[in-house]
Simulated assay, not measured.
Amino acid sequence: MNIFITGAAGFIGGSIATSLVKKGHQVTGLVRSAEQADEMTALGIVPVIGTLDDRAMLIEQARRSDGVINAASSDHRGAVEALIEGLKGSNKPLLHTSGSSIVGDASGGKGGGQVFFEDKLPAATPDKAARVAIDDLVIASAKDGVRSAVICNTLIYGLSLGVDRDSVQLPRLLKQARKSGIVRHVGPGENVWSNVFIEDVAELYALALEKNPAGTFYFVESGEASFVDMTNAMAEAMGLGKSQDWPLKDAEAEWGYEMANYGLGSNSRVRGKNARELLGWVPKRTSVIEWIKHDMLKG
């Protein structure tokens, strides 16, 4: 297939793009600079320089492709509208990347947390309403002849398969620990996130390009863990003392409101059946704790 992917210079998009090239697909990747374009070329990806605001370009690339993956932003409505416009009536796949912070509870590191399922999504919180509205727009495009999917990733761990980029959550904890000599988690760190290995994520996208039924929502997960367990595993791997609680206000000063409250300080517990039942997806790795202990520091 000839696939157009936004965010090809990022951790998720770059890993997916590189994996698709290795499977024999032709991949065109949207990047922002000539330097990133050179990175793409070295990986066998055809670069297109532009931004998510280039509506005409996005429509053209979508029309020319056999399928589109949006891995650049979960929150750029204009880009999604342009991609849908380019794919209308084609029955080609549009895989839109979302994230399970849409069900995050911003608990300040406290535990508990409700478990959410693909067929019973909660009403959006004010912080996440715009993102959920984009997810809904993607699902609704199935009525306009787009073989659309929302792929809602959880905490992704693992090393990049393509360009040298970090995932969103665990590397921030690692960077802070290296800077301070203390591994920290938000509040008591009892909050739990579902998680998934990057190679399994890339495989799911590849399967969805071929098999996705139009208008499908996927939670992407293969396990879950609390942040205190993840940070203690990190401390063990680094040879440091036990991880420590960090007041939310200090975490916000380090990582900003969104990351401290949702990315690292919330519960985000989900269960995904659709990838397994509709696509035949079988994740190969299911323990983030084992990866942290044995593989995280290899990057």
Rank of each mutant, 00 (worst) to 15 (best):
S194A: 12
G223S: 10
I182D: 09
L209V: 06
T216F: 02
G223W: 07
E199M: 10
A225H: 10
T216L: 06
V168H: 12
N191T: 12
Y205F: 13
T216M: 01
S194T: 09
L204M: 14
E190I: 15
V196W: 01
G189Q: 08
F217S: 05
S180A: 13
E199I: 11
V201D: 01
L170S: 03
D200R: 05
P213L: 02
G223F: 06
A177E: 03
W193T: 07
V220W: 03
V168T: 12
N212I: 04
V192N: 05
G223Q: 11
R178P: 04
S222L: 09
Y205A: 03
V183S: 05
L173G: 12
N212H: 03
V183P: 01
A214Y: 00
V196T: 08
N212T: 15
W193Y: 12
T216A: 09
K211L: 11
S194V: 07
L207I: 10
I198Y: 01
Q176W: 14
V186A: 05
V192P: 01
T216Q: 04
N191L: 09
E190Q: 15
A208R: 02
Y205Q: 03
A177H: 08
E190L: 15
G215D: 00
S222P: 08
D200Q: 08
S180W: 10
L207V: 09
K175H: 12
T216C: 05
Y205G: 05
V201L: 14
A225D: 13
P213V: 08
Y205R: 02
L209P: 00
N191A: 15
E190P: 10
F197V: 03
R178T: 11
K175N: 14
L174S: 04
N195H: 13
N191R: 10
E203F: 01
E190D: 15
L209Q: 01
E190G: 13
L204S: 07
G181C: 11
P171C: 06
L170D: 02
P171D: 05
A214M: 00
Y205S: 04
G181Y: 11
E221S: 13
Q176F: 15
A202Q: 06
L207W: 02
L204K: 04
R184I: 05
A202G: 06
G215E: 00
V201T: 04
E221H: 08
P213S: 03
D200S: 09
Y218I: 08
E203I: 08
G189L: 08
A177T: 13
L173C: 15
G223L: 07
H185P: 06
G181Q: 11
G187Y: 00
F217N: 06
A214R: 00
H185T: 12
S180T: 15
S180C: 13
N212C: 13
L173I: 15
